[in-house]
Design a protein around this nucleic acid. Structure first.
Lengths: 220, 220
DNA sequence: CTATAATAGTGTCTGAAAGACACGAACGCC
DNA sequence: GGCGTTCGTGTCTTTCAGACACTATTATAG
């Protein structure tokens, strides 16, 4: 049963309030010239997660990001060259690191998930599935914070949620819910952007762990 | 990269208020004599889901059940014979069909998830993961109904929830929530079991679809 | 220097859902 | 006919979610 195993990684980021995904242009057949989700073969001596991390590093230069296994796709005809099973993952990188990712040697660039090009193989299904998972996870986990740099304003955070959910949120209700979680540490630092300066905050992993220990999950 | 791909299926049922899992005893090395989650190799021309359904049928004779992909496990050392990646699934069968499953040729039997034996390979991790997923899904989907036969009483349904969640639920609150969903059709049929007879109900897939169309999920 | 445009930050009310809680009803069995 | 067993039902209180509008602080343009 010579089945080849690959990993594909759907990498999301947020750029100026728009949810984007990193795609690479294929240089070889099949689907030459088509855009595809970055990925590659699993090596003999590495775990699936190690393979995903390696591909992520190789294709984007990015490391130390949120990474989560998504689903495995194994339709016998999904690759015309022969039987492959792919273990799909999704990754979240913040806007600062995202810049470095898009500028690598290989032809890779960020695409708005709204206006993405046609994709190779069954990658459209994989991307759709990743989007669905991201939206769901947003509501009961802290994945939203993974898309922001270390310090951010509450407005930044709200824009992340709005970009992923694709709808506007009420500012006061949003801030109340965030506040109730008690996992943000306000900093003595402001940032100015053409209006009243906004206070910067930092995600407090310490407080978050305490909540998890108590079995409290996220009420978004 | 000769990686072999398998599927393993964690099959749950409920027997007299106890959550049980189907295990098979291994007849060959490695782990000969140890209990394991049923599974097998993915064939050249079948999808992952078809492989899972085939194994389910071969090992338990059971068909037409709830089946959902769980996670893929691919640690390089998970099988001492060589590199394998397994795509794990979980399945739910109702008590009536479960009886037929346990009595097949191969040495297979139901084990309480509370008192399970040591398992082969990394199957303990897989089972734990399946349990976690099942508990989570119970709270916002209708998987609980999959563990019951066509007709059931509200008491039966509550026992399913209690067995999976591992704690007692308030009868009145439980029934109110079920009632609000409006997805059960009360039948003109009672069942007697040593007390006041209980009304039988049937899961109404029609009403359920209407709710899904409206984007209403399950508030458990 | 004053006016204006832009973004930040803040509290109340109302409706819905969740959890705690106790008793009468219908049957089988002795 | 009494007792044991399971079925079936309603209220109150608390918590959470959503709708809703104004003042505060800065930069910039006139």
């Amino acid at each position: 049963m010579p089945i080849r195993v690959t990993v594909d990684i759907v990498i999301f980021t947020i750029q100026s309030g728009d949810l984007q995904v990193l795609l690479v242009r294929r240089g070889i057949e099949p689907y030459k010239g088509r855009w595809a989700i970055p990925g590659g073969f699993v090596l003999e001596q590495e775990s699936l997660e190690q393979a995903a991390l390696r591909e992520l590093r190789e294709e984007t230069g990015v490391t130390d990001v949120y990474l989560e296994q998504l689903y495995s796709f194994g339709d016998p005809k999904r690759d015309p060259r022969g039987r492959t099973v792919t273990v799909a993952w999704f990754a979240l990188v913040d806007a600062e690191r995202a810049l470095q990712a898009g500028t690598d040697a290989a032809e890779a660039r960020w695409w708005s998930v709204q206006h993405r090009p046609p994709l190779a193989f069954d990658h459209a299904s994989i991307l759709d599935y990743a989007l669905e998972r991201l939206r769901n996870k947003l509501e009961y986990t802290t994945v939203g914070f993974q898309l922001l740099p270390d310090k951010f304003t509450l407005g930044d955070l709200q824009k992340v949620y709005e970009a992923i959910l694709g709808r506007a949120l009420d500012k006061r209700n949003f801030r109340r819910k965030i506040g109730l979680l008690g996992i943000l540490k306000p900093l003595d630092e402001l940032r100015s952007e053409g209006g009243r300066p906004a206070r910067l905050h930092r995600f407090s992993a310490r407080k978050f762990e305490k909540l998890k220990d108590k079995g409290i999950l996220f009420p978004f």
